[in-house]
Write a protein that binds this DNA or RNA. Structure first.
Length: 268
DNA sequence: TTCCAGTGATCCCTTACCTCA
DNA sequence: GTTGAGGTAAGGGATCACTGG
């Protein structure tokens, strides 16, 4: 993010409270009063970064951002935010805005100052959503409107989600590649084994197929013949009805671990 | 107690503006 | 000077939860 061409004046930016925790000790999302206070100011035709000229704009006067950049005109505004009072305030606050600015439907863009961004980031780290009280307090601290803080958090959450999606996507891609490799390797192994099976002289040189013994009750398998003997000695069931079958020398007695998606995730 | 309209908050998608290469 | 891409503030619709009548 560049602010080189903007006339940021961080010196005039004066965060009132250094600590977010000091500002918000309660996490409640309550209070009718908050809702009333939160009612945003009309934007149309107003420089959101400029102090409102009218005294009627006092509510936002202390809150508006006198320092953060660009003359900003929001072209549109949510209908639900427009109340009768707001309309009156809008008219009041719009005084002093030039006609061409007023007539201008294109919206100029606000750029947050570095300090504002830092504070917003810090507060986002602590909670990625804000209750009305927190929003108002933060807006006041930053010299922004509550709506701007709200929008910033909304967009920030979207960025976080997008980043997470990218990470997940990358991870799944790697999983897919690994599985493809594994599949290729196994296919190759199958081919080799088939070739071995078809070549008698090589087959003759090999040790005879291992006899596996499986206990019918616990379904444990012992691979080597010595192990089978041991198992027979230890486990009476194995001597009675050992379920035996022949497998190739490549057989493994280790149970196959079914990996879940979570187990595939890289440990962080 | 249930239904319903109103309201606020949030998410998601999109637009518009700004900056930079 | 122009242009296209990328970043981001903001608008607006959809949805959900809550509340009061």
């Amino acid at each position: 993010m560049s602010s080189s061409t903007h006339s940021y004046s961080p010196s005039t930016f004066n965060p009132q409270k250094p600590s977010w925790n000091d500002v918000f000790t309660s996490s409640d999302r309550d209070s009718e009063t908050c809702r009333i206070e939160e009612r945003p100011l009309i934007l149309r035709g107003i420089d959101v970064n400029r102090l409102p000229s009218g005294a009627d704009c006092e509510e936002e006067a202390g809150v508006s951002s006198p320092n953060s950049t660009v003359s900003s005109v929001s072209g549109k505004r949510s209908e639900r935010e427009v109340t009768g009072e707001d309309l009156d305030m809008e008219r009041d606050c719009s005084r002093g805005i030039s006609d061409e600015e007023d007539a201008e439907t294109s919206r100029k863009k606000l750029r947050l100052t570095k300090d504002q961004s830092i504070i917003l980031e810090e507060s986002f780290k602590e909670h990625n959503t804000l209750n009305p009280k927190q929003k108002l307090a933060l807006a006041k601290q930053l010299g922004l409107r509550a709506r701007q803080v709200e929008v910033w958090f909304q967009n920030r959450r979207a960025r976080t989600k997008l980043k997470q999606t990218e990470v997940d996507c990358e991870f799944l891609k790697r999983c897919c590649e690994n599985l493809t490799d594994e599949n290729r390797r196994l296919q190759k192994e199958v081919q080799e084994l088939r070739a071995l099976k078809l070549s008698p002289q090589f087959y003759m040189q090999m040790t005879p197929p291992t006899t596996l013994t499986m206990c019918p009750s616990c379904e444990r398998v012992a691979v080597p013949s010595s192990a089978v003997d041991a198992a027979t000695r230890r486990h009476p069931m194995a001597s009675n009805h050992p379920r035996t079958f022949s497998v190739g020398p490549w057989a493994t007695a280790a149970p196959i671990q079914h990996r879940t998606f979570d187990t595939l995730r890289p440990r962080s």
